[in-house]
């Protein structure tokens, strides 16, 4: 009789081990409490929080979302309670979930805010890893840090000196070459890169002749951006050594597998959480089944294992 195989879904980033590679993306999972009625949170590989800034932010003027073909635009504008209130009120309940908590952070005015944020989070035991969101399109800035390899290198190397905790750098797709930016993050000591953040986008109400979002433009997410994200992961995978956390339009097991084959070591479920709050755990179960069906014993058997058309 054939012994029933149980694939090993664990994966490492730097010194950290994640029990499985399925995470939920920043800004699409609230502070997790909104999902406790729908899934067993303990099953997740990790939870990434909404991006936190130094000071509280009220967020952008509504309307903040608008549906697009197979996607959506958002311009939430990083509404969050600020780092101190976050640590005091949100981190404790998150810590009790027994899931690795990755705290996403961003600077509003000056990149130096990252230093203060990282220093504060470095002291918090409940923080498993820190994600540097240098790619949010909704701060209404002309240029993002992740749109420049030197700026990315400078920022990551500075905060690298401030913490031993695992650092993930989240990248914007609105660049000429995302792999160059990923390389800069790796050279500066980032433990992993997360890609992609939303693509800049805009919709117009032709009857009112107004933009459909309050702040005019926003970020596009959902299945519509998936092919763009896949190609960016694939390009980046060939250039860097550190793990890639792939995301952009993952809604089911098949779309998650595309990301693994393109070179993601972990994946993150975003917009799909809104449509199916159980998507993340369904994908996890589907991934396990795929590995069993194809006799793949560990994730290294699928990460980047793309064949050429001739193979």
């Amino acid at each position: 009789m054939v012994k029933k195989m149980k694939p090993d879904l664990s994966v490492r980033i730097g010194k950290l081990v994640f029990k499985n590679p399925v995470m939920v993306a920043s800004g699409t999972f609230g502070y997790a409490e909104e999902f406790k009625d729908f899934i067993d949170l303990k099953k997740l590989g990790a939870i990434v929080t909404k991006t936190i800034t130094l000071k509280p932010r009220p967020g952008n003027v509504p309307p903040r979302t608008c549906e697009t073909p197979s996607g959506m635009l958002n311009s939430i504008g990083l509404e969050n309670p600020g780092i101190d209130k976050f640590i005091k009120e949100k981190l404790l309940p998150l810590g009790k979930l027994h899931v690795p908590i990755i705290v996403s952070i961003a600077a509003e005015d000056s990149p130096q805010e990252f230093d203060i944020l990282v220093t504060k989070l470095d002291k918090a035991d409940a923080v498993y890893a820190i994600e540097l969101n240098i790619s949010c399109p909704n701060l209404l800035k002309d240029k993002l840090i992740s749109q420049d390899a030197q700026d990315t290198f400078a920022l990551v190397s500075r905060v690298r000196k401030l913490t031993q905790k695992c650092l993930i750098t989240k990248l914007s797709p609105n660049v000429t070459s995302i792999s160059d930016i990923a390389l800069a993050a790796q050279n500066a000591g980032s433990d992993a890169v997360a890609l992609i953040n939303t693509l800049g986008g805009m919709c117009i109400d032709v009857n009112k002749r107004t933009p459909k979002l309050g702040p005019w433009a926003g970020g596009l997410s959902g299945p519509a951006i998936r092919p763009v994200a896949i190609k960016m992961v694939w390009e980046t995978y060939r250039k860097i050594r550190i793990p890639i956390i792939g995301m952009g339009g993952i809604i089911d097991t098949e779309s998650a597998l595309e990301f693994f084959l393109a070179g993601s070591r972990l994946i993150s479920v975003g917009t799909a959480n809104f449509i199916n709050p159980q998507a993340s755990v369904e994908i996890l179960a589907g991934l396990m089944q795929y590995m069993i069906d194809n006799k793949i014993s560990s994730l290294s058997g699928i990460t980047g294992r793309l064949k050429t058309c001739k193979d």
Partner: peptide
């Protein structure tokens, strides 16, 4: 009525002042 994405409070998309 608000323009909703998630409907469960997670996205902060449907806010009113």
């Amino acid at each position: 009525e608000g323009h909703m994405a998630c409907g469960t409070g997670a996205c902060l998309g449907c806010v009113v002042e």
